[in-house]
């Protein structure tokens, strides 16, 4: 069992957990993820690592309540335990001094972007961060991102904070104004797709972090297949980071929706149908 030592509600549907998992924390690096299973009847879901504390032996994960399991997870409180928690999985981010780097984060994707941005900053890069959310109350980790960036730009879809519009509007401006050596983009699939399309004409290498459906997370099942260039890759062991310009985005977005109907059925049948009604 893995104990939740801290819980924060970052936005109505976005929660932060610090989970005691010393062995995972000892080896975790930016860009990696974990897989957890809440209880005996639960499914295994991948969640990105938002931070790690080797001394305290904790992993920080931030998730949005989008389906049965994340809602069930959101109902857990400090002191509760998660049955299974395995990681760190996937390949770490290749941190180097690239020069000027733009880090683009959307929604809950800002969470895994944060440790990557921090590591890139520590490696000597000049960091321009662009973060966005649907509205101000859904924007997370603004202060943390600001602390590891040379410049931070914010966009909200509804204009309740920062630029009204998409992170890609701001990204385009940045690319028009200066030379950029590398881009990291993490967020909803559609955002990463649009970022990749935006940066393609500028020929700036663009790394995205895929979060497809997974089961084991060790390369055993192939559920997380991603088409990259002419090759099929497994996001769990070959990724989760890939060259955004080579990904077959339509395929990737469709594969995310395989179990949409089942997700609704699980929620309808479950006792933990959302919010914190079960507590």
């Amino acid at each position: 069992m893995y104990r939740i030592v801290a819980k924060k509600v970052l936005a109505p549907t976005i929660k932060l957990f610090e989970v005691k998992a010393p062995k995972v924390a000892a080896k975790a690096q930016a860009g990696q993820f974990i897989i957890l299973r809440v209880d005996e009847k639960g499914e295994r879901i991948p969640l990105t690592i938002a931070d790690f504390n080797r001394e305290a032996g904790t992993i920080t994960t931030i998730f949005q309540e989008v389906g049965y399991t994340t809602k069930q997870l959101g109902c857990l409180e400090e002191g509760d335990s998660i049955l299974d928690f395995v990681g760190p999985l996937g390949k770490p981010t290749e941190i180097e001094n690239y020069g000027r780097v733009v880090c683009v984060g959307g929604g809950v994707g800002i969470a895994p972007l944060y440790p990557i941005t921090r590591a890139l900053k520590e490696a000597g890069n000049e960091i321009i961060s662009i973060i966005g959310a649907r509205s101000k109350d859904l924007l997370i980790l603004e202060e943390e991102m600001e602390a590891v960036s040379d410049k931070l730009l914010v966009a909200t879809d509804d204009g309740s904070y920062g630029h009204k519009g998409f992170v890609t509007d701001l990204l385009k401006q940045v690319l028009d104004e200066q030379e950029v050596q590398h881009i990291w983009a993490i967020g909803p699939g559609i955002m990463m797709k649009v970022v990749s399309e935006t940066t393609r004409p500028y020929k700036v290498p663009t790394i995205v972090s895929m979060n497809p459906i997974m089961v084991d997370g060790t390369g055993m099942c192939g559920a997380c297949r991603v088409s990259v260039g002419d090759e099929t890759k497994f996001a769990c062991v070959d990724g989760p980071e890939f060259d955004g310009h080579l990904i077959d985005w339509d395929l990737a977005l469709r594969r995310m929706n395989i179990y949409k109907d089942e997700e609704k059925r699980a929620e309808a049948a479950g006792s933990c149908g959302g919010g914190c009604g079960c507590h």
Partner: peptide, 14 residues
């Protein structure tokens, strides 16, 4: 994951 007992067990199969 016992998907044959879905939705009692949460893992789906199609």
């Amino acid at each position: 994951m016992k998907a044959y007992k879905f939705p009692e067990y949460i893992t789906p199969i199609k």
